[in-house]
């Protein structure tokens, strides 16, 4: 059984990413279950997606995973990654975008929250941390919308879910319109490279 939690800010594409993971797992013959945040929180609020992969439905009865059970945390935003860290199990891996999204409440108070403090906390807490410069990847791919796929690339490459980059790519191909495919393939590959880079450290 594999558990994955995705955390981000409404509008960052967590729902699509969780579906892609579940679909990839299904295509590999597994049973997949997800729980999504849909509704008001999608307007810039904190959003969380849960993905659970088992052999059969009985392996994963709850749609939301228990605390301390995630094999992988995919953080689309550093503070949101910290917020959901209690879901990560001991020895679990985390793939996190290093780009912070400032909430309006922080900007209004005149004090942006400290993104680097979140990142150092994550480094302290998670030995298997992969940091992804999604902003650079988005720029290289020519779209601000591919950060989720870049994170998926790193997530697949790190192996925590038992899915390969090739399998995710195949799921992408089945799901995305042809005109967006090249750009997303590139983002996926660059995300996977971010994992290799992290390994070299």
């Amino acid at each position: 059984m594999k558990n994955c939690i995705l955390a981000g800010v409404g509008g960052q594409g967590t729902v699509l990413a969780s579906k892609l993971i579940a679909q990839t797992a299904m295509e590999a013959g597994k049973f997949a279950r997800t729980a999504e945040t849909i509704g008001m929180a999608q307007r810039g609020g904190s959003v969380v997606s849960h993905v659970r992969i088992g052999q059969t439905a009985e392996d994963v009865s709850s749609p939301m995973l228990p605390l301390g059970s995630a094999d992988l945390l995919i953080g689309f935003e550093p503070a949101e990654a910290v917020r959901t860290l209690p879901y990560l199990k001991k020895g679990g891996a985390a793939v996190v975008s290093v780009k912070g999204v400032q909430p309006v409440t922080a900007t209004l108070s005149g004090k942006s929250y400290d993104v680097s403090a979140m990142l150092s906390y994550l480094r302290e807490q998670v030995p298997n941390l992969v940091e992804v410069d999604t902003e650079a990847i988005c720029e290289a791919c020519g779209s601000s919308k591919v950060a989720n796929v870049a994170l998926l690339g790193a997530a697949a490459a790190c192996g925590a879910l038992g899915l390969t980059v090739k399998e995710v790519e195949a799921a992408l191909e089945r799901r995305l319109p042809a005109k967006f495919l090249d750009m997303n393939r590139k983002a996926l590959a660059q995300g996977a490279e971010a994992y290799q880079g992290a390994n070299l450290k």
């Binding site: 810039g44 503070a79 403090a117 906390y121």
Partner: peptide
């Protein structure tokens, strides 16, 4: 399971896009 105390997190309520 006792979780480590995280740094103060920003509140992030939903907002108009």
């Amino acid at each position: 399971t006792a979780a480590a105390e995280p740094p103060a997190l920003p509140v992030r309520p939903p907002v108009l896009c």
